[in-house]
């Protein structure tokens, strides 16, 4: 019993010592940095893409050369479960970030509940998604080349881009969404349940916040690429087929 009290006392004093570091950062994040960071991401990233759309323009590929089977039924099904739950996660998460402007109360409380529900659905779909795609997602030498030329998206010229079944950008998004999603689920669970020492919880709030900012950015990139930048990209995730011409250009190292 005596040892137990000593242990508690040691834990308490350690908490008090760590208190300053994470707490001051958490206050900074909660008071101003957090919402400013997210506001910057959800305005500047779309603006950047608007400029891209207007000045460089989307890519179009003809279906003349035929189609290539790219995504199986199961892949598409799991992708859409992940996509819908992730969209909910982003929206409800942003609602909590901008809760001040929304006035708090019932609406944000609902958002917080739905954040949990979508997190569970996403976690369940992220695991099979990881297993299905992981073999195509390991870094390859030509990914560096892809990164240096920004995937060729900065020029109007159509020439073969160095990428396998997935390009370096898609690979980054994959690892962020699955492993990063795992970190989000892990930290999120502790934030939700308050099931860790106080100083760890503060650190988890910060990790959850910063990683969420990165994920939100990549989410917007993914939306732009699939909905606007490459015409017909959305259709490939519905039907499973990509135009052969698109695969030859954007995934030139992919052996059909």
């Amino acid at each position: 019993m005596n040892r137990f009290i000593q242990g508690l006392h040691a834990l308490f004093s350690a908490t008090v010592q760590d208190h300053k570091t994470w707490l001051s950062h958490m206050i900074y994040f909660q008071e101003s940095l957090g919402w400013k960071l997210f506001l910057a991401i959800i305005t500047l990233v779309p603006l950047m893409f608007l400029a891209h759309y207007l000045f460089i323009g989307p890519r179009r590929f003809s279906h003349q050369k035929g189609l290539v089977f790219f995504f199986s039924v199961i892949t598409r099904f799991i992708h859409w479960i992940a996509a819908i739950s992730f969209t909910f996660l982003v929206i409800t998460g942003l609602m909590v970030i901008f809760a001040r402007s929304l006035g708090g109360g019932g609406l944000v409380l609902q958002a917080r509940h739905w954040h949990l529900v979508s997190a569970i659905v996403f976690s369940l779909s992220a695991l099979p998604m990881f297993l299905i795609w992981v073999k195509d997602m390991f870094p390859a030498p030509y990914d560096i080349e892809w990164l240096f030329m920004m995937g060729g998206y900065l020029s109007k010229e159509t020439r073969p881009i160095p990428a396998g079944k997935f390009n370096a950008g898609q690979k980054m998004w994959f690892w962020l969404a699955t492993l990063g999603g795992g970190v989000m689920a892990w930290t999120g669970w502790y934030i939700y349940s308050l099931g860790a020492p106080t100083h760890s919880l503060r650190l988890f709030v910060l990790i959850h916040g910063y990683l969420a900012a990165v994920l939100t950015g990549f989410f917007i990139i993914h939306l732009y690429m699939s909905l606007f930048a490459i015409k017909g990209s959305l259709r490939s995730m519905i039907t499973g087929y990509k135009p052969k011409e698109e695969v030859e250009i954007l995934h030139s190292r992919f052996k059909v």
Partner: peptide, 25 residues
Amino acid sequence: TCIGCGYCFMACPFGAPQFPSGKVF
């Protein structure tokens, strides 16, 4: 206005904020 996020509990040096369990989950 409170949404029960628990951040005040993480910030408080005295462990003052308390949370009753709500209706949903």
